[in-house]
Design a protein around this nucleic acid. Structure first.
Lengths: 140, 140
DNA sequence: GCATCCTTCACCCGAAAGGATGATTTATCC
DNA sequence: GGATAAATCATCCTTTCGGGTGAAGGATGC
């Protein structure tokens, strides 16, 4: 903050000096008063635009990052579409039986899918699978 | 954006008009040139500070909100310290046996804690418990 | 001192989950 | 047309979970 004010002051002083120089050398004799004032106005407006954000504390907006599926990991681990589907339902807290009913297949199929998933995720329990899948951004 | 530019232009025009007014009525006769220029500089610096952030696109910084334990929910649901501890370990993917070893108690104790937790969280599976506990911000 | 809550542990039983293996069907690719 | 991968289902067996019940020791508060 202190540093910022110093920089700001320095730039301001520099600008004033520049103006003085310009004033006595070239402009006053050749230009009308209006143009001279206009130049000053533009210069200091630009200065304000530049210095404003540096003087005023930046507002940090905390936002929950939207979920983006990590498709690269899906491919890398060789997780199929169906397996991913089962993974999502499992992570939502459904039992194998419930998942089977939702997907219109038998429980055995779900168990097979989950077995394969556990192998691919290198885990041995569904709670671990949820952990890992969240880390890898396979599920929200 | 278009609206912002219009406002900006309007304010600028207003300021110029004000300056003209001031110039011809009071100041030029009484003040030195330096002070007059100084006032212009200050005015347009302020204008720049005000208009800058409105002209330049605001940068939104996306940050993962830090985890804040919802103690109110803990009290409301009557979840004890030990139960919360077990809940955390469970959510990390540990089996009852593993949790028991980590806390130096028997598996039966862990099972009792989890049974009570399931009652308090109104769930019937550990995966559901994880879901609900995350929703309630009882665990990260 | 008594009630209450927390923590601990035990036992039983049935349901759910996990591991291994094999088989069939259906796409898809070369 | 054969190879390959995905999806489906099954069976067998073991481990883990979940539900119910009971009980004992310790801390807290009135």
């Amino acid at each position: 903050m202190t540093r910022t004010v110093l920089i700001y002051g320095g730039v301001l002083a520099l600008l004033v000096a520049l103006l003085k120089y310009v004033e006595y050398r070239f402009l006053v004799r050749d230009m009308s008063m209006e143009i001279y004032i206009g130049i000053i106005a533009v210069l200091f407006t630009v200065l304000g635009i530049w210095a404003g954000p540096r003087l005023i504390k930046r507002r940090v907006i905390v936002v929950n990052p939207a979920f983006v599926l990590n498709e690269e990991a899906l491919v890398r681990l060789g997780i199929s579409k169906r397996e991913h589907e089962v993974l999502e339902l499992m992570a939502q807290g459904h039992s194998n039986q419930e998942i089977a009913e939702k997907l219109f297949v038998s429980v055995n199929t779900i168990k097979t899918h989950l077995s394969n998933l556990f192998l691919k995720l290198e885990v041995s329990r569904r709670t671990q699978a949820i952990q890992k899948a969240k880390e890898l951004r396979l599920i929200p």
